[in-house]
Amino acid sequence: MNIGEAAAASGLSTKAIRRYEEGGLIQPRRLPNGYRVYSEADVVALRFTRHARELAFPLAEVKRLLELWRDRGRASAEVRSIALQHVAALEAKAASLQTIAGSLRHLASACHGDSRPDCPILEELAR
């Protein structure tokens, strides 16, 4: 199938498919004229990638997970370790975002939000 058909079958854009190919996640066959030909296995790998990206896995981790998925002799312990490390990173990011939201909430509560030019939000950003 061509890239448009692979995009429709995988739920990804053609741009994303090209990016994933450049990143080495898939390697479609090339015809003599340079056109890419995607197999059903490529589409399955693209769907896998889309799901992993929806779970916010970085591309390097997606690539490793794809390698493990393709390796039938893999140890599930490595997959679990990758997933738990990702959970820890997501939780740290969530905590950081909560702190940022709290800071902004505090600044917004200190702002009068009226016609006066005084604004603690802008003053804090200028520091």
Score class of each variant (00 low, 15 high):
S76E: 09
Y38S: 01
W69H: 09
P28W: 00
E21S: 04
A52D: 04
P32E: 15
R74E: 03
M1S: 08
A60H: 12
K63P: 03
L12H: 01
G102P: 10
S103E: 13
H106K: 14
F57S: 02
A77N: 02
G4T: 08
L25Q: 12
L107G: 13
R64K: 12
D118Q: 14
P117L: 12
D118V: 08
H51D: 12
T99K: 12
F48G: 07
R50Q: 06
Q98N: 09
E54C: 03
A88C: 04
D42K: 04
A75L: 06
L68C: 03
A101R: 14
N33T: 13
I82H: 10
H51E: 09
S96G: 11
N33Q: 14
P28F: 00
L68Y: 03
E5H: 08
G113T: 10
H86T: 03
A45P: 05
A7K: 00
H112G: 02
R19H: 11
I121A: 11
D42W: 05
T49M: 08
Y35A: 09
E22S: 12
G102L: 06
L31W: 15
T14R: 15
A45Y: 09
G23M: 14
G73C: 05
Q85I: 02
R116Q: 09
L55S: 05
E91H: 11
G113V: 07
V62K: 07
R36I: 11
D42E: 15
